[in-house]
Design a protein around this nucleic acid. Structure first.
Length: 569
RNA sequence: GCAGCCGUAGCUCAAUUGGAUAGAGCAUCUGACUACGGAUCAGAAGGUUGGGGAUUCGAACUCCUCCGGCUGCACCA
């Protein structure tokens, strides 16, 4: 089933070909303003510029060669040479009727399925997940969901930070100051306490500093006792992370942390040096990128003077492992924008090593504190992710209690979770991923305006109509539209498959979020203007069909964002 | 110092990547409630897109130049 956009583009290509004009200029987009029509093309203006012709004159020629009479009104020319299209009501009715019978709501599978590995979330062991992890976690999950739905073979991998210098302090603290009761009740809190305690001791006590370093060296050289402690901290931390992932309904196919690649680091360095890709410089082993101007003076260090390995080393070993294990067509790294240089380097290095996968750094903006500075993990002043989720559900619960007293308490609890968590996810996904923003409870947990509850409420209204109707929509009904509000809603519905693929074009879930907001908005307007249950049997059947399709589209779109819909709220 | 990102309504953000009169939400104001659930709808007001210049039919978007903010840049991850 072609979308209107595909239909129009196809016809425009035919017209351009007939005129001997290049077909790749046949670009049709949704109209910027509904007053102009439903779709528009700027092809005449673009081509007029190239051929030095009068744009309106060319538009007239294109129009003469263009045949869309079977599904649209006669196109019009406006302004400098815009060609505007308006779909016929008959076409919209037929099209929306066929969507109602399609389990995929009009979305085709991708013609070029890929195996895609998505690397996201990546919390650090022995540290709590904080607001800074929200973006990677929610964005990565959403992109994985959309890619899967479109037919890609997706592997999600949580590359957790389970190896590093912090373990010297943690192990030292574990051996001297561990509070087993505290560990039992909140493991990460206790591990953080140990880390901070040892850090403060080190400031004044040289012995502590030295011993902590020795614990790290022992761990790295395979000391059984320290390895056992390390493993416990990893397991305990993961248990806490898992609670949050469960709450957020996020799953990983793989959970290979940094430690998984330890044994690969030395051989990797050896082989890179042997192949002449890495060289010694100032005592360290480096990869230089002399052919890339931007990186000409930015080598990647893969082995320190003291023999230790670095972030870049692990990432390169990870790429090598993943390439062998999965043979992915693409690897997506959902990691903050400040690491752009790092990824530029390791991607360049991977290229030198012969990696043929498409490597993408899907960057996102930073979450800032009140001072407009990035919230640092290390400052410890960060708001915890668990805290955010708890507060979100709490705020939603108060709202549900105030507005929906008649709903039983246990149902209300589930509704509060659905609304609160949906609000947090939507707040993230509805804005451009590259935008920095100042952390704000009121913004993240807002329940009014362009928020998840607005979309969920549209769904709830639909469910309520069906509860009262006492029947489902009849799938054999022809959805013949008759009202402007119906038409606007139906048009929105058939644009769903035009929207979903855009998300992966530039990794922008906000395009889908915006679409769903507009869909919900069109439904709410329809709801006010077009009575369903009180209408004549014919119109009632049509409108029930439109409601059913709207409900399915809303629920489906929200599920791609990782957001659930309540039956009532 | 070099590089990258950013500056849009009072506030928080969009803008299909060069398209038409720059759009939403919040806040403010005016209407619609014994409601197919008002967590809604209809409307008003709010802008020299940081300043200046250039390119062209057309610029928030491209180029130049100032101003301001953030980030990264050799042994943390």
């Amino acid at each position: 089933m072609s979308t209107p956009q595909e239909l129009l583009t196809g016809r425009l290509r035919i017209a351009l070909a007939a005129l001997g004009l290049p077909q790749d200029k046949a670009v049709v987009v949704q109209a910027a303003d509904s007053r102009f029509g439903d779709y528009q093309t700027n092809a005449a203006m673009v081509l007029a510029k190239e051929t030095r012709r009068n744009p309106r004159e060319l538009a007239n020629e294109i129009l003469a060669a263009l045949d869309v009479a079977d599904f649209a009104d006669i196109p019009t020319i406006a302004g400098a040479g815009f060609v505007n299209f308006r779909l016929s009501d008959v076409f919209i009715s037929k099209h929306v009727t066929s969507l109602a019978a399609d389990p995929r709501l009009g979305n085709a599978l991708t013609p070029s399925p890929k195996r895609i590995l998505v690397d996201f979330s990546s919390p650090n062991v022995a540290k709590p997940m904080h607001v800074g992890h929200i973006r990677s976690t929610i964005l990565g999950d959403c992109l994985a969901r959309v890619a899967r739905f479109l037919g890609h073979d997706v592997v999600t991998d949580n590359h957790i930070g389970d190896w590093g210098t912090q373990f010297g302090k943690v192990i030292y603290g574990w051996k001297h100051f561990l509070d087993p009761v505290a560990l039992e009740s909140d493991a990460i809190r206790e591990l953080v306490r140990l880390y901070r305690h040892v850090t403060s001791l080190e400031e004044t006590d040289e012995d502590v500093r030295r011993t902590a370093r020795e614990e790290l060296v022992k761990l790295q050289s395979g000391d059984p006792e320290n390895l056992a402690i390390w493993k416990q901290t990893v397991d305990l931390s993961w248990r806490e992370f898992q609670k949050l992932y469960d709450e957020l309904d996020i799953r990983f196919d793989e959970r290979l942390g940094e430690s998984s690649y330890n044994d690969l680091l030395a051989p990797l360095c050896h082989s890179l040096k042997a192949r002449g890709l890495a060289e010694e410089s100032e005592g360290a082993l480096c990869i230089f990128f002399r052919d890339i101007p931007a990186l000409a003076e930015k080598p990647a260090i893969i082995r320190k003077t003291d023999g230790g390995f670095l972030y870049a080393t692990t990432d390169l070993a990870t790429i090598e492992y993943r390439t062998k294990r999965w043979q992915p067509d693409a690897i997506w790294y959902v990691v903050g924008a400040p690491q752009a240089l790092h990824f530029h380097q390791i991607f360049a290095a991977a290229c030198l090593m012969g990696c043929s996968s498409e490597l993408r750094h899907i960057a996102f903006g930073s979450i800032l504190g009140e001072d407009r500075k990035i919230m640092k993990t290390r400052s410890g002043e960060n708001v915890g992710l668990a805290e955010v989720l708890t507060e979100a559900v709490e705020r939603a619960r108060k709202m549900v209690e105030a507005r929906s007293e008649t709903i039983p308490a246990e149902v209300r609890e589930d509704i509060a979770r659905t609304i609160g968590l949906g609000a947090v996810k939507y707040a993230e996904l509805s804005q451009n991923r590259l935008t920095d923003y100042v952390f704000s409870w009121d913004k993240l947990l807002a329940l009014d305006g362009n928020t998840a509850p607005y979309l969920q409420n549209a769904y709830v209204r639909i469910r309520s109509i069906f509860r009262r109707a006492g029947e489902d929509a009849d799938p054999s009904t022809s959805l013949t539209i008759s009202d402007p509000a119906e038409r606007a809603l139906a048009l929105k519905l058939l644009q769903y498959p035009e929207t979903v693929p855009l998300v992966l074009e530039d990794f922008r879930p906000n395009l889908l979020a915006n679409y769903l907001y507009e869909l919900a908005n069109a439904f709410h307007s329809f709801y006010e203007a077009c009575p369903v249950l009180k209408s004549t049997p014919e119109i009632r059947a049509v409108r029930l069909g439109i409601c059913a399709l709207t409900g399915r589209t809303l629920a489906h779109g929200l599920s791609l964002l990782g957001i659930r819909c309540p039956e009532q709220m």
